[in-house]
Design a protein around this nucleic acid. Structure first.
Lengths: 111, 111
DNA sequence: TTATCTCATTAAAATATTCGAATAAATTTA
DNA sequence: TAAATTTATTCGAATATTTTAATGAGATAA
C-alpha cells in the first residue's frame, strides 16, 4: 500500500466523525446501546435521516447493529472511537485558537 | 451554548482532519516544523493547494505559523492532535469492519 | 391476511468541499 | 526601485455530502 492510501483511509474515518449529527449519535451511544426509535426521540433527528447516518457509521464499522424483534439496537464497536472523541474535547478545552471563553466554558461544562 | 453547538464545533475539528492531504501535512509536521516549500517538495502537492490546506488548518488552530525572513514555518499547535491521529491508526489496526488483512498489515507497517 | 410498528433505501434538491489557474502580497537581494 | 523567491488569496468548475420526501421491507399481533 502506498503512503497516500494510508492517509485516505485515515481521513475516511475522520470524515465519518465529521458531522454534528453523527457526533450526537455517538455521544448518545457512549453509555449504552439504543434503538433507532430511542435515538429519534433523544435527538429530534428524523427517522429517515438517522437511519442514513447510522448506515454511514455502520459501513465504516464504527457502530454495530443487532436486531431484537421489531427493534434494532445500535452500539459503538470500538471504544477507541470514544477515546478519540474525548481527545478532541480536550483539544477544544485547551483553547484551540480564537474561541471565546464562553464557548470554552460551555465545552468544559459539557464534557 | 446549546448541546448541538458542541457537536458542531466537535465535528468541525474532525472535518479539518478529514482530508488525505491534510493528514499527510500533519504527519509531516509531527516531528518538526517545516516551511511551505519543504512541504511542497516532500508531498508533491502544489504550492497553491498546500497553502489553501494550511489556511484551513490554521483557521482551526491546528497548526501555527511563524515567519522567518522569506519563509513561513508551520508546526502543530497541540500535540493532542497527534494523539488523536495515532488513536485513529489504532482503530484501523484493530480491524475496523471489513478491511483486508493486506491493508491492515500495511497500516501496521506504516505506524 | 391485514394492520401496525420499526427501520432502511432511493431519488432529487440544496449545500459544501476541493482543485487548478490566475493573481496578489511579503520579504530579500541586487 | 526592480527582480526574484516564497507564500497567500480569489474565483469558478467539478465533485461530494446532506437533507427531505416518498417508498419499501421486516417483524409482530389481531
Amino acid at each position: 500500500m502506498k503512503q497516500k492510501d494510508f492517509y485516505s483511509i485515515h481521513s475516511d474515518v475522520c470524515k465519518t466523525l465529521a458531522n454534528p449529527k453523527r457526533q450526537e449519535i455517538l455521544d448518545n451511544l457512549r453509555q449504552k446501546e439504543m434503538t433507532v426509535n430511542e435515538l429519534v426521540k433523544k435527538t429530534g433527528i428524523s427517522q429517515a435521516n438517522l437511519s442514513q447516518h447510522l448506515a454511514i457509521l455502520r459501513a465504516k464499522g464504527i457502530v454495530s447493529d443487532r436486531r431484537e424483534g421489531i427493534n434494532v439496537y445500535y452500539s459503538i464497536s470500538n471504544p477507541k472511537i470514544i477515546e478519540a472523541f474525548d481527545l478532541i474535547s480536550e483539544v477544544l478545552q485547551e483553547g484551540l485558537s480564537t474561541r471565546s471563553k464562553t464557548i470554552q466554558a460551555a465545552i468544559k461544562r459539557k464534557s
